[in-house]
Write a protein that binds this DNA or RNA. Structure first.
Lengths: 315, 315
DNA sequence: TTGAAAGCGCTAACAT
DNA sequence: ATGTTAGCGCTTTCAA
């Protein structure tokens, strides 16, 4: 199953490989020669080897994307945005999932480097660490998503502001004692809590959706609550379910407020803080393409989408 | 920003490039030489160029995945499955979205071919057409997902069976007049309708979620209904919302049944037909890795997950 | 306008 | 056990 090479095309058209190369990449060639070459190309069904091309360019035309948890819908939109920009630059996306494991992240980033991706987008985790940093030092534009890292490009949400938006809305709805379920002690989560301005004792951490019921129980045990905030989209369904399963009525007993928009939010009437994930993906990819010399740190604005789950705004 | 090459490492270690290559790929080398080479590798921070390696192998170590609509959660799990197998074979995933456009699909498939992917997984669409077929003919293992195509590997759901499962459950719940919202006239959709055994007049097509309200109206106008089935996961939220927005009570007025499991189904009590998408992704990738000589067509079994949306099973 | 030839970074015989 | 020498498929001078 030998592949057709540029040499085969050249032979078939009776020209040199250099000429074929020129025809394909738009060099100066005589009209008649060009047609002869194109004919050869289509009759042999020639498909140029992009890998070989990349050797010359020094790097491939691919954008590497390393995702920490591909089961989060947040990332779907991010990837769509990246892919959109990639396609517009006839680039392709090389994707890898790290299953929330730091060692896998390092391995995947290294793999991307070996593939000589033209740029890397990492949602992370520990990516600020050696492998990514080394890539950046070697001249590969690297963009960190969801985290701000010194000396690297980054795309993130204004998490403190997200927290403040939530706090303000809750206050406007007359809610005074709010409990929080967050997903971790990572900066993106803690910043949201900080913006909310609740005491540390009002925060419970649920690493995974399975931990949500216990987290909700813990929250409910701390005393009477009139609002529950979920700071991670991965947890929203689980937290909401745990709440209703315990006979808590939303919004009559407690208000419910979550971070990240999701398809059923409208139907369920869940008020959320939305991130412009698709745009964030596009920007991340554009950063890779443009590869600015100085580190660029883009912070996106969260939006409050008011629905029914926090009750009426009083006054 | 010149990259470190195998030659640099060789010079630094005082050996030939062949020896360095042997050290990396596990050939016969003296212990002492090996350590010297490894030292050089780490002190120069050498990262071997995978592209160049692939030139020799004839193809890259990457699995190409072309997705018709990356906004569908169905594909998220599929990709996770693929990535899992890829990672286990230290392969990477090259992803492209076609935004539901056939011309883009052809272009993306061609791009994958130029990247010399070791195999291709396409969810499609028109992929049965020339570009994919040509790749398969050139010896690249190609797997079609969600469709059975002559002479190619394929991964699909037993759609007729899915329809039958739904029909049986609906009957068991005493529902007799069912209306269907489907997403297209493609085989995967029509087979589900066929399994349901409803007359053509009971079926409405909504191409996109935006079309769901109109589709539901059309359905409701055909006469009294006691069940609504949605045969596409992309449409479930929109159809359900349109239903409830019209004051229709589920399951009291009509039963609601959808294809494809989704995160909120449990909370909402929506009965669904689930596809083993993660496993389907894994199998697709395994097919690529194994690359069987004869076309393999794997058909997966749908599962009925009973919840509240169809009411009580009578008898 | 075209071809010959060198070389991109690496591997794989073939020598030694 | 190691080095030499061809390539892999393509691009890019440099001549003609």
């Amino acid at each position: 199953m030998k592949r057709v090479t540029i040499g085969d095309v050249a032979a078939h058209a009776g020209v040199s490989t250099a000429t074929v190369s020129r025809v394909i990449n738009g060099g100066v060639v005589a009209e008649t020669t060009a047609t002869r070459v194109w004919d050869a190309i289509s009759s042999l069904d020639y498909s140029p080897n992009a890998l070989t091309k990349s050797i010359f360019a020094g790097r491939s035309n691919t954008i590497g994307v390393v995702i920490r948890d591909l089961s989060s819908p947040f990332y779907l939109d991010l990837i769509r945005g990246i892919d959109e920009v990639a396609a517009a630059n006839n680039s392709l996306v090389m994707l890898a999932n790290t299953f929330r494991r730091d060692d896998r992240e390092a391995a995947q980033v290294r793999a991307m480097d070996e593939q000589r991706v033209r740029g890397l987008i990492v949602t992370t985790g520990a990516a600020a660490d050696s492998p990514t940093r080394r890539m950046a030092d070697n001249g590969t534009p690297c963009v960190i998503v969801s985290r701000v890292v010194d000396g690297m490009h980054s795309i993130s949400l204004d998490n403190v502001r997200a927290g403040e938006l939530m706090a303000a809305h809750l206050a406007a709805c007359g809610r005074t004692s709010v409990g929080v379920v967050s997903a971790s002690r990572r900066p993106s989560q803690t910043e949201r809590v900080q913006g909310l301005g609740v005491p540390e004792s009002a925060v419970t951490v649920a690493e995974a959706p399975e931990d949500a019921p216990a987290a909700v129980d813990a929250l409910l045990a701390t005393g009477p609550l009139d609002a529950v905030v979920c700071t991670s989209g991965r947890l929203t369904a689980a937290v909401y379910s745990a709440l209703t399963a315990r006979g808590v009525s939303v919004p009559d007993d407690v208000a419910f407020l979550a971070v990240d928009e999701f398809p059923w939010a409208e139907t369920l009437g869940v008020t959320v803080i939305a991130q412009p994930t698709y745009d964030m993906g596009k920007k991340a990819a554009e950063l890779v393409i443009e590869s600015p010399a100085e580190p660029v740190s883009l912070v996106f604005e969260p939006t409050l989408i008011v629905r029914r789950s926090c009750g009426e705004v009083s006054g």
